[in-house]
Design a protein around this nucleic acid. Structure first.
Lengths: 232, 232
DNA sequence: AGAAGCGATGTTGCATACAAGATTTAAAAC
DNA sequence: GTTTTAAATCTTGTATGCAACATCGCTTCT
């Protein structure tokens, strides 16, 4: 089947947002990338109006931003914004687990399924799917715990985190992440929410530690070196 | 000065949202209230387009929802949605305090100022200002801790909570809330984040407990009784 | 060659026009 | 008097038109 995008961009007004979020989580859209209204309107077969409305919603969710009369761009957070975003995630996810009573066997099973899918994607070398699943685990966790509000908040925060990781060239190992996800589920299965929360805290610290915050600054250094060094 | 709304709805595209959020936090806009596009466009002196864009953002923030071809309405959460929202708030705010290192004296001072303003509003009997400040305390806390991302998330969640409280006729005493805010600051001042987090948890449980979740169902009961009882 | 000016082109910002459906009002039928 | 039907009215949904501004490429001048 080819390009179903046009099929029902009218039927489902949130299709455009969903696609963009999914693409970002999959690493198929880079931070700073430009998203032209006309471009998108052609892709989805609708007028600029609907595209614009979708962008407004994505803007409110902190996924894109607009530069006056220049266009829409996927967010490109500064180091400070990146820290705040990850801190917010940590607060939310740790708090979510701390205030949790007990996870049912059904929930555990769903989460284990998810981790198995992660492993499969890692093994098969499907980078987009891998990136998506590793990020989506956290949304899945909130959904599984039965709170759509939390899930929605986490979707936005994890999407932003993935964009940050792309920007600061995270070297965080997929396999390690996947293992940590498993560890969190283990703790949940034992009914030890406190331990699960601690592991989540550690996990998110690993994610943050893997970010090379200097890469933004080092661009300047790189440029400087290139201009000062031997050359033309 | 009368009605500055028209003045710069063009200059500041977020004015419409800000006004609606503020009105909701102040209890001047009730859950379920209809917000007509034309109506708003006249109030703010802009075309429907800008109103619509603001509504899209508010929709993404979970403040309003749209009923197809019927109009925009302030959210009117079900009991379940209300629980999820408050649970999310608890997770976020407890997590925020648990993962906090230490609050500086400057922060403490800012927060104490806020509580003083709350007390003043309570004493003066200004219900709108009181409602606004009691809700805004939580946003203020996140801002003071220096995380705009958290502050933004909390603004939306507290706004929704205020709407829920209006819907389920919270009888939570303003004076008690204000006192609990003070207690949280006390714990922060002593550098005891864990205790602050615990107090926040208790505080939010009080807020939730004050909600009369039955009021939605009791409307049916009320109607039923009215129809079955003596009458025409 | 390089910088400055300038027109051509493309993009967003905002308003408006019109279509599609919901709601209300009024009338008519029973 | 009540219910049904139908027309009129109002509201949102979507597209389009035009103005304002940014950007790019070309020319011209130094």
């Amino acid at each position: 089947m080819r390009d179903e995008a046009e099929k029902d961009a009218h039927k489902n007004p949130h299709l455009i947002e969903d696609r963009i979020i999914h693409a970002a989580l999959s690493g198929r859209i880079a931070p700073g990338e430009r998203l032209g209204e006309k471009e998108l309107s052609e892709i989805f077969g609708v007028s600029r109006t609907l595209v614009r409305e979708a962008m407004m919603r994505l803007q409110a969710r902190g996924i894109v931003e607009v530069s006056a009369r220049r266009g829409w761009f996927v967010i490109e957070p500064s180091v400070e914004e990146a820290r705040h975003t990850i801190d917010a995630r940590r607060a939310l996810e740790v708090g979510m687990l701390v205030t949790l009573d007990r996870a049912s066997p059904g929930m555990i099973r769903a989460l284990r399924d998810h981790v198995r899918a992660e492993q499969k994607a890692i093994a098969s070398g499907d980078r987009a799917e891998r990136s998506y699943l590793l990020g989506h685990f956290h949304v899945c966790l909130a959904e599984t715990l039965g709170n759509p509000v939390l899930a929605s908040l986490l979707q936005d925060l994890t999407t932003r985190t993935v964009l940050i990781a792309a920007l600061y060239q995270s070297s965080h190992d997929a396999h390690e992440s996947c293992g940590e996800h498993g560890g969190i589920i283990d703790a949940l299965e034992k009914g030890n929410s406190t331990e699960a929360a601690r592991l989540m805290d550690v996990h998110l610290r690993h994610v943050e530690k893997a970010l090379n915050y200097r890469s933004a600054a080092s661009r300047l250094d790189h440029l400087k070196a290139a201009l000062q060094g031997s050359g033309t």
